[in-house]
C-alpha cells in the first residue's frame, strides 16, 4: 500500500467513508472497509487520521494541528516520530498521499 516518495508538500488525505472507528480507553480500533482489515491505533495515530479526514494537509500542517489538539509540544512528539507515524498509516492504507504542487 505504501506509496513511493513523498515531499514536504505532499497532501495527506483520509477517506472517512472507508473506515469505522471505535474507541476503547485510549485505544482506537479502525476497520478499513476496502481492505477488510482491522487496525489498532493509539491517540497519536488516531488524531492524525481524524485531522486528515477533517481537512487534508501536508506533513507540517497536520503536525501543527495534531500537536495542538493533543496539547503536546515538539519535545513530547518529535517531528521524526510524527512522520514515521504518517508513513505507517500510509502503509496500511488509512492515509493516502495526494500530490500537491505549491510552487
Amino acid at each position: 500500500m505504501a506509496v513511493g516518495p513523498y515531499t514536504s508538500q505532499t497532501i495527506w488525505i483520509a477517506e472517512a467513508d472507508d473506515f469505522v472507528i471505535r474507541q476503547f480507553e485510549d485505544v482506537y480500533f479502525v476497520f478499513c472497509k476496502s481492505a477488510g482489515t482491522t487496525h489498532l491505533l493509539n491517540f497519536l495515530t488516531a488524531s492524525i487520521v481524524k485531522n486528515a479526514v477533517d481537512k487534508p494537509g501536508n506533513m507540517k500542517d497536520l503536525y501543527d494541528r495534531v500537536l495542538n489538539d493533543l496539547e503536546l509540544d515538539a519535545e513530547d512528539c518529535p517531528s521524526e516520530l510524527f512522520e514515521s507515524s504518517v508513513v505507517q498509516l500510509d502503509e496500511v492504507g488509512l492515509l493516502k498521499p495526494k500530490e500537491y504542487s505549491n510552487a
Partner: peptide, 18 residues
Amino acid sequence: RRQLLRLGAAGMPMVLTL
C-alpha cells in the same frame, strides 16, 4: 501518553494490524 510517545520514538510501531 508521553511514555507511549517515547516508546514510539524508540521504534515501537504506532499502528498495529490485527
